[in-house]
Computed example of a mutant assay.
Amino acid sequence: MSDAPSRMVDRVVLILNVFERSTGALTLGQISVRSGLPTSSVHRILQQLVTARWLQRDDNEYTLGLRMFEMGSLVGQRRISDVARPFIQELCTRTGHVVHLALLDELDVVYLEKVGGALASELPSRVGGRLPAHCTAVGKVLLAYAPQPVLDRYLANGLRGRTSASITTEAALEAALRKIRDTGYAMESDEAVPGVACVGAPIFEYGNAVAALSVCGHRKLIRVDDLKQRVMWTAAEISRRLTVPARPVAVG
């Protein structure tokens, strides 16, 4: 007789908890011993989890699969958006400019949020859309604080420009990233869209730059000296909220 649904779920949770406590690949025997489940049941469940991409099999060893990381990434993205949304709404209201929230994904920035301003419809950015990281303020911020292997992989793919003002050499990008690390903010002018300038700052979670925000507007209306402190303060507030544990909801 097959396992009842609730019993099967309990067993899947036990097996996934084994991986949570492990730092490497595990064999069928190790998973069975650590979960306390019969080898035959573990083998059957592992096959189903591999088919669903929750786990990955390499010879006789199992590791967490791509689907697990994809789901974890989605949860992280939603949490960042939920925390940041009221802050970027306020930043848009106070500056009158378009505000972006974005994260780094391979060679691009992916936009999680884009909040109004008269210029919004003129910009190519959209929620869920992508632009080359080195051509944007949010992207340059994230590259500046990315681990060196991430930056090395990015540079290995070359730097294609979107406009005549885009950075297209490693030396120019590395100089720009050093300046960002020194000042705590990034700016770009005409590099993604002619006539548009942006000021960006990083959002940190436990020391890692997980996202970035920017204020964008017509180049002649962007006052970097006026905006940089406001953008950095907003990014710092979002960072602080991300690292503060959620308060338990009182019951009764």
Rank of each mutant, 00 (worst) to 15 (best):
R219T: 14
N60S: 05
M8Y: 12
V42T: 00
V210C: 11
K228D: 00
M1Q: 09
L173V: 08
I203H: 08
E70C: 03
L101P: 09
G161L: 07
G96V: 03
E61G: 02
L119K: 06
A197T: 09
S189P: 02
V141G: 00
N60Q: 06
G200S: 12
A235D: 09
S81D: 13
A52M: 09
D108W: 13
S41G: 11
R162F: 03
L91C: 00
D190P: 07
N157E: 02
E188R: 06
Q148Y: 13
S214H: 00
R21G: 12
D190A: 13
G76R: 11
L142K: 02
V141L: 04
D58V: 15
V199C: 13
A176Y: 03
V18H: 01
M1A: 11
E191R: 12
D3T: 10
Q148I: 15
V75I: 11
I167L: 14
E237Y: 06
S121M: 12
S40R: 15
G128S: 07
Q89T: 11
R178I: 01
F204M: 14
T168C: 03
V231T: 05
Q229W: 12
A172S: 14
R160E: 14
D10V: 10
T27E: 04
G200N: 10
R181K: 09
A212V: 09
D58W: 09
V193A: 07
E70Y: 08
L242Y: 11
P245V: 00
V33W: 06
G116L: 01
K228L: 01
S214V: 02
R153Y: 06
A175R: 06
L104C: 04
R85T: 14
L55M: 09
R219V: 12
D59V: 09
G161Y: 04
G129L: 07
F87T: 11
P202C: 08
Q56W: 05
I238T: 04
S166W: 03
V251N: 11
D59R: 08
C216R: 00
L28A: 05
G36L: 02
T39Y: 07
G65S: 06
L142S: 01
A171E: 12
V231Q: 02
G96H: 04
G24V: 04
H218W: 15
T93L: 11
D3R: 10
G200Q: 09
R219F: 07
V115Y: 02
A211I: 01
R57V: 08
S189E: 13
A201F: 13
E188P: 00
L221I: 07
K179F: 10
A235N: 08
E70R: 13
A165Q: 10
E191A: 14
G117F: 08
P149L: 08
S41K: 10
A146H: 11
R11I: 12
R178S: 00
G128L: 07
A144M: 10
T183A: 06
Q47C: 10
L131I: 05
K140S: 01
G252L: 12
A236N: 05
K114D: 09
G65W: 08
V13G: 06
T243S: 15
G128K: 06
Y62K: 04
L103A: 14
P245D: 02
P248F: 08
R53P: 03
V141N: 00
A172R: 13
K179C: 14
A144C: 10
E188W: 01
P86Y: 14
Q229K: 13
L213S: 04
V50I: 04
D226L: 15
A176Q: 07
Q77S: 11
Q56V: 07
Q56L: 06
A235M: 09
H134Q: 04
L91V: 00
E170P: 11
